[in-house]
Write a protein that binds this DNA or RNA. Structure first.
Lengths: 340, 340
DNA sequence: GCTACATTATGAACCGTTTCATCACGGCGG
DNA sequence: CCGCCGTGATGAAACGGTTCATAATGTAGC
């Protein structure tokens, strides 16, 4: 029985020794093979093969100073909206041979900070962030330290910080106005905390639509804060609403996952959608059209959102900052249509 | 107007200079603060603040040799099945203060290799991989180079490689047997390429169930290979099936996203589920129960799958390899129930 | 007053790669 | 025959932390 020592990873020096060349030559084989004689190159390649040599990324990066990687932080990677955005980001980055590391903050500012620090310590060139709170001072100072920053799914409050967003006020307005047109006069809004800007903005839009219709938001709007922006949150939101009694005839959910949970819970409680309660979601995810009651939803240009953000980040710090705002669009389906 | 020079990131040496101490002391403040006098520590901390110093992760890691990070490669990060698995992984890693980098191979072996190399170059301690092909020799050699490897959602073919899987043969069997019990004698299977082990195994299970029932798979089974394991793939699969004429009365889809696409397309074609075609999916994702026709599906212990894989990886190389296999479970809903 | 010892701080070595000034060698023109 | 030039190969410096043997200082005991 042989005892194999826990051997260290082979380094460039080991390869050089086996191939009988200098470390500089090995490095050249790896990075500028055309500069080294074919015979030498082959010897080096054989040594690499023999030792199963793998470059040490840390050393390489330490020397290089920067890497062709960017970071992205979204609120919830399990939400199809954000995976679509991430796909858009990837699509744009691939053209420039960049890679992206995607992290999910789960709406938690602490997790957001932790990932930002991780990204910065590892020398990413830039980050795209869907901030978990209204306070973005940490992103401004991050940028001052030389890291590119693009706000994602959120307009920038300052002119010199780039952002790519969808008009959430308008989105909320579209949803509420539609429900009003269907004859509803009291609307429940299952929303996330207003610390999340998208939630605050959609609320503003809803209020605006109510006021336009001559209604008093204090009476016509019942806002319920859900514990999480997913199906479980939607379920909890509906339960809260039902416990109160005096339930509205329409429910607007801050996203489709929440609407999914709402739909599930309403059905379990024997409440028929849309006859007894009309339902509108947000994001128009893949399955929205295929639900037991096809879901009316506000569609956003997800893929384009990601692509544009990545594009702005890559075009870099020399070009002036820009704020892009896309417009959402209402997709009407059965879940919100009044019977008859 | 001031011209701000593109200043270099502050290093530990800069902090030391400003604080009037040595680099070793700064490092001690960062890593073993209890060993340095409070007065000194405060001066160093002030300097860190003043210079907005952020540790260079590459340098730190280069010296340390390894990091508390592991990699995970799944087939499709947009599939709720895999995001649930990823959540399970995260949950287990968090307890040991590890972080995970998740990448999606999109069923592409080339992408899988690229990410594995990236992970290895950056010195991850281990990887959890859902392999895109049957060939796992690259994973075996990776492990020989000292990187921990756990096969994810796939049983290991060799005794000394750990794996965490769900019995896919049994899963396929459960689905097919259920359809046979409902009286169907010809079944379509919208499956992925057999290079993906899960697809091959589920096929074996289906064939086994057919044979048990005394049917000839060559006649009773129509296998359609979908171009992608998602809703678009399901749509394409149904279109292929319909173009052939002579369509079976039951369709088994390799996962719920595919089933979603199938359902959508059948509806558009005016084919009623389950009356004209029975439908069964796989994974039992969140929305399966809420679809226009609630979807019968094979449920897997996703979260536990991820947790267990991470646990085996963390327990490390000293303990012997182990192969864990969970059992799936059929959840029957309306999409597969014969009328009457 | 001297030794022994604990507490802090120091600074050089080290991790593995890339880069670049320098060198060795051969061919060629004058 | 000499100088020049181009092609390849070389080896040491540099990147920015961490670690550890060593030094400096203070304190206690005798």
């Amino acid at each position: 029985m042989t005892i194999s020592a826990a051997r260290r990873r082979a380094s460039i020096a080991d390869v050089a020794r086996v191939a009988g060349v200098s470390v500089g030559t090995v490095s050249n084989v790896l990075n500028r093979p055309e500069r080294v004689l074919p015979a030498t190159r082959e010897r080096v390649e054989a040594a690499i093969e023999e030792l199963a040599f793998v470059r040490n990324g840390s050393a390489r990066q330490l020397r290089a100073g920067t890497i062709t990687t960017v970071g992205a932080i979204v609120l919830d990677i399990a939400n199809p909206f954000f995976t679509d955005v991430a796909r858009g980001i990837e699509a744009r980055l691939e053209r420039d041979d960049y890679t992206v590391m995607v992290a999910s903050s789960d709406d938690d500012p602490v997790r957001e900070h932790r990932y930002l620090r991780l990204f910065e310590e590892h020398g990413v060139q830039g980050v795209m962030v869907v901030p978990a709170t209204d306070d973005i001072s940490h992103l401004l100072s991050l940028r001052e330290r030389g890291v590119g920053v693009v706000l994602l799914d959120r307009p920038s409050p300052v002119a010199d910080l780039s952002s790519v967003a969808v008009d959430d006020v308008h989105g909320g307005e579209l949803a509420a106005r539609h429900l009003l047109e269907q004859g509803h006069t009291r609307i429940a809004f299952l929303n996330g905390p207003h610390a999340i800007r998208q939630c605050a903005d959609r609320h503003v839009g809803v209020v605006r639509a109510l006021e336009e219709a001559g209604l008093d938001p204090a009476e016509a709007l019942v806002e319920v804060t859900v514990p999480s922006l997913n199906a479980d949150g939607g379920e909890a939101g509906i339960r809260t609403l039902l416990a109160r009694g005096d339930r509205p005839t329409a429910v607007f959910c801050v996203n489709d996952l929440t609407a999914l949970g709402a739909l599930r819970t309403l059905r379990r409680e024997g409440i028929v959608v849309p006859d007894e309660v009309a339902l509108v979601g947000y994001d128009d995810v893949t399955f929205a059209a295929e639900l037991a009651t096809p879901l009316t939803s506000v569609r956003q240009p997800t893929h384009q959102l990601g692509e544009t953000a990545a594009d702005i980040l890559l075009r870099g710090r020399d070009v002036p900052a820009e704020q892009v705002v896309f417009q959402p669009e209402l997709v009407v389906r059965a879940s919100s249509l009044s019977p008859g």
